[in-house]
Design a protein around this nucleic acid. Structure first.
Lengths: 226, 226
DNA sequence: CAGGTCATTATGTATAGACATAATACGCAT
DNA sequence: ATGCGTATTATGTCTATACATAATGACCTG
C-alpha cells in the first residue's frame, strides 16, 4: 500500500462496504497514515480528493466524516462549439444572422447585474454539416469590442473573445425551453419544440463582458461520467 | 507571495493578460518556484489546480502550456432531490405511482449494457409544497432489492440505494424533451411541454444497479459557477 | 535511412518535519 | 448555570529532498 490512489480506493471500499457507515467519523489522518504505512501527506491527498468528489466531509478539528447525503459532484466539459462539431466528425459552419447595437431586454440586464446602456447584439447560427446545430443570441459590452467590429461571420464571438479578451469569472446554467419563432426557424424545427438551452454570463474583474443564450438542436445531450 | 492560491492567481493573471499567450509553453516548476520564492511542491499544487480547471495542459517532459482551446470544466452538484426541495424552503413530498416487475424496454436494456431479464420498475413523483417537482421513472436490478420490497412511498429509491447498496460508478446526462402523457399529467403541465430531463445509470463493479430518468417540472435550471 | 536504445528532462508523487488555522471543548469566573 | 477565554486537536499548507514515470530527442546500429 503506497500511492494516494490506492489509499483512496481503500477508503472508498470501506465506505461502500459500510465498514464506515454514512455520517460516521473516520479515523484521523495520523492514524490512517500509520495503519497504511505511509506519510500523513499521502493520506491527506487521498481524503482531500474524496472530499472534493463529495464522498467525505472534512472540517478542521472536527475530523473527517462520511457524507450523510452524498451530493455527487460531476464535472462537465464545456467545449467550444466548433470543437464539439468537429469531434462528431462533421463539418463546422457559421452564419451571422444579425449584428446591431441596442439596449438589451430587461432580463439580460438583470443577469449582467448592471445596466451598460447600449450593447452589441449578435445572433449567429452554428452549423454541423450544413444543418442547424446551435443558435446563439449574445449581448456584448461595447467596451470590449474594437471599433471596426470583427467579422463575426468568420470567427465565432466566443472564439474571438477567448483570443482577445481577458476575463475572470462567470456562471453557466442549463434548462429546457420551447423554441421560439426565429430560433425554431434557424434550427429548422417546429416552433415550440423542446430545446436544450445553455445560458452563460461572464465578467471581467470589474465589468460584465457578455451574456449569451445557446439554443441547441433537438436531440442534444450533455453527459459525463460520475 | 507564499500560498499556492496566490501562485495560482498570479499564473492566471499572466494568462489573462496574455503575458503567457494561448498555447504557449510556460516556465517549468523549478523556475517558477525560484521566481516566486516558494518550494516546487507549492508551484505544483497551483499548476495542477489550473490544469484540473482546464486552463493549463501539462505533460511530463513536454512541460506546461496554456490551453489553446480552453475547454472549460464546470463542476455540478447533483443533489438528492429531497435536499434540493428543502434547500428552496419548500416541503418535500413523495408519492409512489407504480411498482411492478417486468422487462424493461429496449433502450433501457441498451443503456444498462446487458439484459437482466425482469427488473423492478418504480415510478414516483417528488413534490415541492404539494406541487409536482420531479417525475422519476426507474428500473432496478432485482438482485439489489430485498424480498419484501422496501416502502418506496416512504423513502425515495435513491435515498434507499444510497443507504443500502454499495456502488462503483455511473454516468449522467441531461437533455430537453417533450413531456409525454403520464409525465405531463403527474407534473400538472400540458402534454408536450418542454421539460428538463436527467438520465442516470449506475453500476456496481460487476453488474448494473439501476437506470433512472428524472423529468423536472418546467422552469427547472441547473446552474453553476465557472 | 530506418529503427531501436538510452540519456535527459519536466512533471508526478512520496516523505518527514514544521507551522498555520479553525473549531471544539474544557475550565474558569461571574 | 451561563458566558468567555484558552488549550487542544485535526485538518490545511509549506518546505526540502528524493525517487518514479513518461515523453522527448539524440545517438547508435544495421
Amino acid at each position: 500500500m503506497a500511492g494516494w490512489e490506492e489509499i483512496r480506493a481503500e477508503v472508498l471500499a470501506r465506505i461502500r462496504s459500510r465498514a464506515w457507515p454514512l455520517g460516521a467519523l473516520i479515523p484521523g489522518e495520523a492514524a490512517l497514515a500509520q495503519e497504511f504505512g505511509v506519510a500523513r501527506a499521502t493520506v491527506n491527498r487521498a481524503l482531500s480528493e474524496l472530499a472534493r468528489a463529495g464522498v467525505l466531509e472534512r472540517k478542521r478539528k472536527a475530523g473527517t466524516r462520511v457524507a450523510a447525503l452524498p451530493v455527487r459532484k460531476a464535472t462537465l466539459d464545456i467545449p467550444v462549439i466548433r470543437a464539439e462539431v468537429e469531434a462528431r466528425g462533421e463539418v463546422y459552419g457559421l452564419r451571422l444572422l444579425r449584428l446591431e447595437i441596442g439596449r438589451p431586454p430587461v432580463p439580460v440586464v438583470a443577469r449582467l447585474g448592471q445596466d451598460l446602456g447600449e450593447m452589441v447584439h449578435v445572433q449567429t447560427l452554428h452549423l454541423a454539416s450544413g444543418r442547424g446545430f446551435v443558435v446563439e443570441d449574445r449581448w456584448l459590452n461595447r467596451s470590449v469590442v474594437p471599433d471596426p467590429i470583427p467579422d463575426f461571420g468568420a470567427v465565432s464571438v466566443n472564439e474571438w473573445l477567448v483570443a482577445h479578451v481577458s476575463y475572470a469569472s462567470g456562471d453557466i446554467s442549463f434548462s429546457a425551453d420551447a423554441a421560439d419563432g426565429w430560433e425554431a426557424e434557424a434550427l429548422g424545427v417546429a416552433a415550440g419544440a423542446a430545446v436544450f438551452v445553455t445560458e452563460r454570463c461572464t465578467w471581467a474583474p470589474e465589468h460584465p463582458i457578455t451574456w449569451v443564450r445557446l439554443v441547441h438542436a433537438p436531440g442534444y445531450r450533455l453527459s459525463t461520467l460520475l
